[in-house]
């Protein structure tokens, strides 16, 4: 699993949301490239090959799906860290959250988030959103060339 090329990093603490998201991704044939981080710290460890992921060779995923409300290090802090690191400065980050608060939206965009998606309550809409997201960032969008 460590060797597989991770295309999506999902930072989400809520198991139900994880399950629903993963199911949707699976339905869209995108599941095998997903790594799930259950809090902000773990997401950063995974990205920058630290802690439990120290042995991993650095390889940026194609997109990070980031919840804002994460234990330990919250979504905004994770985003800050990503934007602060040279290697992940241009990494596409999609905020995926329940919050519709204007403050969250604004600060996210200020930190250079690529998309801000509010998770719909309605499951069908949710499914549709996730599907399109995966398609867009993994299939349509060409990652910017490094260097």
């Amino acid at each position: 699993m460590i060797h597989a090329a991770v295309e999506i990093l999902l930072a989400e603490d809520n198991p139900s949301d994880v399950e629903l998201t993963l199911r949707t991704l699976k339905r869209s044939n995108l599941l095998n490239t997903v790594h799930v981080a259950r809090d902000g710290e773990e997401a950063l460890d995974f990205l920058f090959c630290r802690g439990p992921h120290a042995g991993r060779d650095f390889a940026a995923p194609k997109v990070v799906l980031l919840d804002l409300k994460l234990p330990k290090v919250d979504g905004i802090e994770v985003l800050e860290a990503i934007r602060a690191d040279e290697r992940t400065r241009l990494l596409p980050v999609v905020i995926l959250t329940s919050s519709r608060e204007q403050a969250d939206v604004t600060s996210s965009y200020k930190l250079g988030v690529n998309s801000y998606i509010q998770k719909p309550v309605d499951f069908e809409q949710f499914q549709e959103t996730i599907r399109q997201l995966g398609l867009y960032w993994l299939v349509v969008n060409q990652p910017p060339s490094e260097g």
Partner: peptide, 22 residues
């Protein structure tokens, strides 16, 4: 409060909706 309502209340609803759909 409304921030947490928006977060915390919407999530379980989504789950109810999602899993019943599934």
């Amino acid at each position: 409060f409304s921030y947490s309502v928006s977060h915390d209340l919407r999530a379980p609803l989504r789950h109810i909706s999602g899993f019943s759909k599934i």
